[in-house]
Write a protein that binds this DNA or RNA. Structure first.
Length: 159
DNA sequence: GCCAACGTTGGC
DNA sequence: GCCAACGTTGGC
């Protein structure tokens, strides 16, 4: 099992929005970066765990825990001319963009970006790296465990 | 609103 | 294949 951090703008889909959706599941559409896409296509497996991260908002940080609920499949928004994610270069026979489904495990207390940066144990976290703009980043198992146990007060084995 | 960082595009 | 221009991300 792998661990991930996935960014969402709460104005688009917040942790509370996810909690209110049918099945508490959302298609992670709109990824238009090849590295992030390749993570979904090549490395994600249903059952993987992810931090649900709020970005582009007054209080950026980890807002909850989710699980990968499907394999990667073509992102419908790339074919939708009315979508801001429409990609005229993508053909139905050869889709460029894929997404997975993400399902809520639980909302947590917000772990703010500043709190993550303050932890020496997390100094190498990919999402904290200088210049990082990826909306999906891998999380090391040690980092995952540290955040759950030390910052959230949760038992990783129960999630 | 600013701006650093970085990915993508497209002419050559 | 190079690289300048441009667009986007996202914290502050």
């Amino acid at each position: 099992m792998r661990y991930w951090l996935m960014k969402s703008e709460p104005a688009d889909c917040s942790i509370d929005d996810l909690a209110a959706l049918p099945g508490q599941t959302v298609a992670w559409y709109g990824v238009r970066n090849y590295q992030a896409r390749n993570f979904m296509m090549q490395q994600m497996t249903p059952g993987d765990r992810a931090f649900f991260y709020h970005s582009g908002c007054p209080q950026p940080g980890i807002a909850g825990i989710a699980t990968i609920a499907s394999p990667a499949y073509p992102d419908a928004s790339q074919f939708d001319a009315s979508s801001r994610f429409f990609d005229p270069k993508s053909l139905p026979d050869a889709p460029r963009w894929f997404n997975v489904d993400v399902k809520l495990v639980r909302k947590t207390a917000l772990i703010e970006l500043a709190a993550l940066r303050a932890e020496p144990a997390l100094a190498n976290m990919r999402v904290l790296a200088r210049g990082n703009r990826l909306s999906i980043t891998p999380v090391d198992p040690d980092e995952w465990r540290f955040i759950l146990t030390r910052l959230m007060g949760l038992d990783p084995d129960e999630l």
